[in-house]
Design a protein around this nucleic acid. Structure first.
Lengths: 333, 333
DNA sequence: TTGTAAGCGTTATCAA
DNA sequence: TTGATAACGCTTACAA
């Protein structure tokens, strides 16, 4: 690998000038610029970005910590982020947090140590205070799927409460009177918001709330399967089931079928997220769309904006959920 | 952020000594080591890894280029890679290649420019020659899901031919005589290998090969849907369908149901990969397991081994596919 | 066992 | 518009 110094020799200029043409940082006469470009080309010169980082105190890399690297939800998000950052010539470093506070903190520190200029954080276990302290330390970041007091301007999330409300309301509109709910884990804020919206819709429509019709899962399909079996055993009849996410809906549907129910006639189901696979569940899953792609793009653009002053049009997003009507919802028999 | 120099002053030693205790590179007396450690602690010292990289010509980061960031297949792979690399304290930089030669090459150069010590490549469009040249340039890398002549020791892939053979053979064993096939795109090597295995099994069992029973898809569920419709229209009856991957199987199953077929009685289906969602398709999909997790772990370990001399036990893997029997396969009526 | 000092390949300040 | 040259924070011969 050739260096800036070799280029400067070949072009007959100083290394400072070479640096200038690389960065367009200050005026260089067209003549010398040409000479430099030619020399670079001839040597196949590629700037060493490590050296650039050290000297400029800017690494042009952005760290992303995300709960999991697998799962359609995270995949879509990561994809959008990479696309956006990449087109701005920024490197993306990733680390998984696995929804564990220690691992999440470690991931963040790990990325910071590597001189990431900014972070995009999808963290669920780390405390609000830790995040506020991060800001105090001068770290630039955006926060996905979470609202933290004091960090409002850098938080991006959808209105989970509204989504939960919509799903339940739709069930009621179609005619269901007895509706079961399988929620995500209690320690996940989005799960609790979705649940809160559901309960409120029930209340607003003067429907009774039976504790036996609520099951707390953990967002996995296994908990959806297990949850459905529990609800079914409870003895209280229900014709509708709302799930905190699509994975659990998929699991619940499997369980319902094993128990001999015909879907959607015996049971209507609504999921949440509009995950990739929800079209391939049978019956095709009616669900609440989570505009995760948009959130990915916007979070990346905001980081680009606040860190490098890059202007972008996609700095705002619509945090309203949307009902995607497919086949798993029908009127009760 | 404090520097090594400040630590050295506080500890009353030279900066070289501080560096030594950081890296355990050469003996330091327990006494001075303690002093240094104490000073580090007091200052909250964190080494600047950019500076370390520049000086040591080693960035401790590994680049991963993968076709897509979304999809269960890639997600699982990425997850294993991150886990393995992370536990070895290496940073992982990612870039998506989108199965486009220009983007893939750009991704590779992009990561190299960032001084990645090694690469893990899941690239599909770039030429074999480019990859051989990469090796000549001295770049360390492993190659996933691909076999390139001259790079045998750094390629990891399963036996797709054998997998294709197994699927077809199983169909035949169960009693199917007329079997349709929806393959992945022609330019994907794994897709062609799977198809080749399928045809060979047909031949070995003396079953006729009808061109009308073959459809070339592109690994998406849409092409599975479309493909099934085409095959169905062909007029040639078939009771079994083998798909080049699970996505297409999912699409084909959707299409079959829309056309009024009862599964698995009217149609048996086998997929490939054992994707995350294949358990949640109805009927639960019988498929060929692709040991992608194992491949992820092994590829990361190999890179760690060849790049940093780290020894590891997981340097070998079993490239034999495995049939996962679920509910989508039954004897023909 | 420890220190000195020359890099590593850039950027950026100051003069010219 | 250009050139010297001092950082940037660390590693690593080479000496002591």
């Amino acid at each position: 690998m050739s260096t800036i110094y070799e280029v400067s020799k070949l072009a007959g200029v100083s290394s400072a000038t070479v640096s200038r043409v690389m960065n367009n940082s200050s005026r260089v006469s067209p003549n010398t610029r040409d000479k430099v470009l030619k020399a670079m080309d001839e040597l196949g010169f590629r700037p060493n970005s490590i050296a650039q980082s050290l000297a400029s105190k800017r690494s042009n890399s952005i760290g992303v910590v995300i709960s999991e690297l697998q799962g359609s939800y995270y995949g879509m998000l990561l994809n959008e982020i990479e696309l956006t950052l990449r087109s701005a010539k920024k490197h993306v470093m990733i680390a998984a947090g696995h929804a564990d506070a220690a691992i999440e903190e470690d991931s963040i520190e790990f990325l910071l140590q590597r001189s990431c200029d900014a972070l995009i954080l999808f963290v669920e276990a780390v405390s609000d205070q830790y995040l506020r302290d991060l800001k105090k330390r001068g770290v630039l970041f955006t926060l996905i799927n979470r609202q933290v007091e004091g960090l409002e301007t850098q938080c991006l999330s959808i209105d989970n409460y509204q989504g939960g409300y919509m799903a339940c309301q739709k069930m009621i509109e179609v005619g269901h009177q007895s509706i079961a709910y399988i929620s995500g884990p209690e320690w996940k804020l989005d799960a609790m918001e979705r649940l809160r919206g559901h309960r409120q819709a029930l209340k607003d429509h003067k429907l009774p709330i039976h504790d036996e019709l609520f099951f707390t899962g953990d967002y996995t399909e296994y908990s959806g399967e297990h949850g459905f079996e529990q609800l079914y055993k409870s003895g209280i009849k229900f014709s509708g089931l709302v799930c905190g996410n699509d994975e659990m809906a998929a699991g619940a549907i499997m369980a319902a079928r094993h128990l001999g129910l015909a879907l959607p006639d015996d049971l209507s189901v609504i999921g949440f997220d509009d995950a990739y696979f929800s079209r391939f569940i049978y019956p095709r899953l009616t669900t609440i769309k989570n505009p995760i792609k948009e959130i990915g793009t916007v979070s990346a653009n905001r980081v680009l904006h606040s860190t490098y002053g890059l202007k972008s049009k996609n700095l705002e997003y619509d945090n309203q959920p949307l009902l995607i009507a497919r086949d798993s919802l029908t009127a009760p028999k």
